[in-house]
């Protein structure tokens, strides 16, 4: 008899780690999305702003990693059947993150003609990553959903 493969259910520690590091990877683009609207480049030098943002990201990453390691044991004992809300959070930050990457491209002096191409490429890559992560970690298969 063929045994039906059961999806592995991950602990809160693993899910929190995924969401936290995803947030940190997208942190600079996420901030840029909102500062871009308010024309931050007219107030502060873009390169300096990016350096400050990188330092802040590094500091938050270190603090977050420490907290995750401290709470590791208690988080490893917490399990949920699915992590839909965590996945929704991930989707939300990815949507704004994609836009943020395009803003970053603009700030770094990229040619504006290629913005649409870059946007499409990023959307394809991130949608693929999200679908993979959704089914692997979050027990959320978008294709199976009604």
């Amino acid at each position: 008899m063929i045994k039906k493969e059961r999806p592995k259910i991950y602990t809160k520690f693993e899910i929190d780690s995924v969401t936290f590091y995803a947030t940190m990877i997208l942190f600079i683009p996420l901030v840029l999305v909102f500062t871009y609207v308010f024309d931050i480049e007219t107030i502060i030098d873009t390169n300096l702003f990016l350096i400050i943002l990188s330092i802040i990201t590094a500091v938050i990453t270190i603090i977050g990693t420490t907290i995750l390691l401290i709470k590791k044991d208690s988080l490893k004992r917490q399990v949920k059947t699915n992590y839909i809300y965590e996945f929704y959070y991930l989707v939300a930050i990815v949507v704004f993150g994609i836009l943020g990457f395009v803003v970053l491209f603009d700030y770094l002096g990229g040619d504006r003609t290629y913005i649409a191409n870059i946007l499409i490429l990023l959307v394809v890559i991130f949608v693929y990553i999200l679908l993979k992560f959704g089914s692997k970690f979050f027990n959320f298969d978008y294709r199976k959903k009604k």
């Binding site: 609207v37 836009l99 803003v103």
Partner: peptide
């Protein structure tokens, strides 16, 4: 927010 950013980008 998304519309504002995209409009500015284009």
């Amino acid at each position: 927010a998304v519309a504002t950013v995209v409009y500015k980008l284009i």
